[in-house]
Design a protein around this nucleic acid. Structure first.
Length: 477
RNA sequence: GGCGGCAUGGCCAAGUGGUAAGGCAACGGAUUGCAAAUCCGUGAUCCCCGGUUCGAAUCCGGGUGCCGCCUCCA
């Protein structure tokens, strides 16, 4: 079965037909590193991560590139009201823009790692690809798609690229009528966008044929995608806000230069809302990964939650929904941990059929425009079926673990590792074990009041007890 | 002002013409000393109004509410 995706450019659901059979060249729009990323940003990176994992489960080799935008950019075309995020952060924190970029790049990597997002194959930085961008701008000027103003700025001439607006559904005329773009006299058309800005005040500046300055925002992705993936790529992803102007401009740059279709599929994820509203700093809803942990939630629960809503649906973050995700993860952990094998138990052919069927349906759901919600339904049905099976043969147990491993290769919840691991050692382990033993003794004496009192005390400390046939197991919440 | 999207049980969320997946919570039962975990079972006609159709959550029209893009933004 081929993968089907809804392509933003055509509005159609289309088959993934890669340039090179079996190899997917994928470019994901990454972070702009001027502040700590919030969980809405991670919805986009998580989408890219699951997409990559699903393609790999489907047998594709994926070459994944994610840019790090570490150059500050003034808004499109003005030097008065525009604010450069990196320079603003630099002023606020009293360090250079370079320090800001380095610091938040590290934060991004750290949070991504904690969310079990697989590293892309390259994370090209804009600051390290200025020569490539200059070369691209030169090519665009040579081909008549860009022009240099007397002030030393270089703009893309949108009138020379008739397809401009096709991705977003905008037309150049409407954009002009919208009049939200400040009129800059030196531009031929209000929708023309900057490829190079001459600015000797800017903290980050480079020499160019047009004077010292810095590159326009959009050109970095065109230049870096081309360098690492070639003139044509299979998949380009980003948040819905990137559709216009960023990706629209990328198409104009890349195709204007090469004359070849840039990306075969454009995939965009909808935004994450908090309590049904756009998250905002003023309402205190721009949660970071640290905020989630500070509230006592695991990042596995956050990962599950971010996964569980289809990427093209607006997703609503609420704390009760995060609780629900935590419950779902716990039930999966319990089930995987509970797979117990015994000698002398015969293989159960129905179990093998069950897992094989689950894997098939799981992949089929993912192939259908990455329907992770439907895939999770398969996962939970398998979970319930396995729980019903109780003790299984050694062969079946190994097969089941194999199935869970493959399902988890997409989910990224580390289910097997969690099932196998013993709780991490803590200083009060001995004390807790002592209380557990005391409760066991009380139960043997049928002193239920004392046994329950101990259980309550442990519960208050976040210790969960499970009385099983093989004794008591305890875990930390 | 222009363009686009969404509205499914208490909460989260699949499903785009053939009679409502899944998770969490809740309730009843099994199990348990009592619990926890697990298993079995219970719940929605799909924002409102009108239309098309043998048949609509799914298509069309009109409302209402919310969200997004048009400016940096995942």
């Amino acid at each position: 079965m081929p993968f089907l995706f809804r392509d933003t450019l055509t509005g159609e659901t289309r088959e993934l037909a890669t340039l090179e059979p079996g190899v997917v060249r994928m470019y994901n729009c990454g972070p702009t590193v001027y502040s700590t990323p919030q969980i809405g940003n991670f919805r986009a990176w998580m989408f890219a991560d699951v997409l990559r994992r699903a393609l790999e489960l489907g047998g594709h080799e994926v070459r994944q590139i994610m840019n790090i935008t570490d150059v500050g950019h003034l808004t499109l075309d003005d030097t008065e009201s525009g604010e450069d995020k990196l320079e603003a952060a630099s002023r606020r924190e009293g360090v250079t823009a370079w320090d800001i970029a380095a610091r938040y790049t590290e934060e991004f990597f750290e949070s991504a790692r904690r969310l079990n997002i697989l590293p892309a194959h390259e994370y090209p930085r804009a600051t390290q690809h200025v020569p490539e961008m200059i070369a691209m701008i030169r090519g665009l000027i040579d081909r008549g798609h860009a022009y240099v103003t007397p002030a030393g700025n270089v703009y893309y001439d949108v009138a020379t690229f008739p397809a401009y607006g096709r991705l977003s559904g905008n037309t150049v005329e409407e954009l002009e009528a919208g009049a939200r773009v400040a009129v800059v006299p030196e531009k031929r058309h209000p929708a023309d966008f900057a490829l190079w800005k001459r600015d000797e005040q800017h903290q980050m500046q480079w020499d160019s044929p047009w004077g010292r300055g810095y590159p326009g925002w959009h050109v970095e992705c065109s230049a870096m995608a081309r360098k690492y993936l070639g003139d044509e790529i299979d998949i380009h992803t980003g948040g819905e806000d990137n559709i216009f102007p960023h990706h629209e401009c990328e198409i104009a740059q890349s195709e204007g230069l090469t004359g070849k279709p840039f990306a075969r599929l454009w995939l965009h994820n909808r935004h994450l809302l908090v309590d049904g509203r756009k998250m905002s700093k003023s309402s205190g809803t721009m949660y970071t990964v640290d905020d989630i942990e500070a509230r006592g939630h695991s990042l596995r629960a956050l990962r599950y939650m971010l996964l569980a809503t289809h990427y093209r649906q607006p997703m609503n973050f609420t704390w009760p929904a995060l609780d629900a995700a935590a419950g779902a993860v716990r039930s999966l952990d319990t089930s995987v941990r509970g797979i117990t094998a015994a000698d002398g138990v015969a293989d159960d052919p129905s179990l093998a059929a069950l897992s094989a069927g689950a894997e098939t349906r799981f992949l089929a759901a993912l192939e259908d425009d990455l329907n992770v919600s439907a895939a999770l339904a398969v996962v939970h049905e398998l979970r319930a079926a396995v729980n019903r099976a109780q003790t299984v043969s050694r062969g079946d147990a190994a097969r089941l673990r194999g199935t869970w491993e493959r399902l988890d290769s997409v989910l990224g919840l580390d289910l097997l590792a969690h099932a196998a691991s013993t709780p991490e050692a803590r200083p009060d382990d001995a004390e807790i074990q002592g209380l557990v033993d005391a409760r066991t003794a009380a139960r043997e004496d049928r002193d239920w009041a004392r046994a329950d009192a101990i259980r309550d005390e442990l519960a208050a400390r976040g210790i969960r007890l499970e009385d099983g046939p093989d004794g008591v197991r305890w875990t930390r919440d």
